[in-house]
C-alpha cells in the first residue's frame, strides 16, 4: 500500500499476530511474525486501541479531539499521519 492515499473514511484493523500491552504512558507491541518490538506514546496508543476494523478514521479523530481537547483538523492530521506510519511498518491492514 506504498502510494495509498489515506482518507478519514478509511477503516483499518490491527494486523493479526501483533501482541501489545498498554503501559503507563506508552503502548508496547511485538509483531510475532517478524519478531520486532515497537512502542508508541500515549496518544498513539489510544489510536491503536481504537483500530478495531469497524470505526473509520474520522470517528477515531473525533474521539482523540474530544479526549485530548485538540482542534478536530489537527486530530485528523495526527491520525492520518500515524496510520501512514503503521502502514509503512505493516502493523495494520484493511478489514477483509
Amino acid at each position: 500500500m506504498g502510494d495509498y492515499k489515506i482518507t478519514l473514511k478509511d477503516v483499518f484493523k490491527k494486523k493479526k499476530g501483533v501482541a501489545y500491552r498498554k503501559l503507563l504512558d506508552e503502548t508496547v507491541l511485538i509483531d510475532t511474525t517478524r519478531g520486532e518490538i515497537f512502542s508508541f506514546n500515549e496518544t498513539a496508543g489510544v489510536i491503536w486501541e481504537l483500530l478495531d476494523g469497524e470505526r473509520d478514521l474520522g470517528s477515531i479523530a473525533g474521539e482523540i479531539s474530544s479526549e485530548y481537547d485538540v482542534d478536530s483538523d489537527e486530530a485528523a492530521g495526527d491520525v492520518v499521519e500515524f496510520i501512514s506510519q503503521l502502514l509503512e511498518a505493516e502493523l495494520v491492514e484493511k478489514p477483509a
Binding site: 503501559l23 503507563l24 508496547v28 518490538i37 515497537f38 512502542s39
Partner: peptide
C-alpha cells in the same frame, strides 16, 4: 533498539 528488558526496568 527497544527491548523487553528496557520495558521491564522502566516500569518495574
Amino acid at each position: 533498539m527497544k527491548t523487553l528488558y528496557n520495558v521491564s526496568t522502566k516500569y518495574g
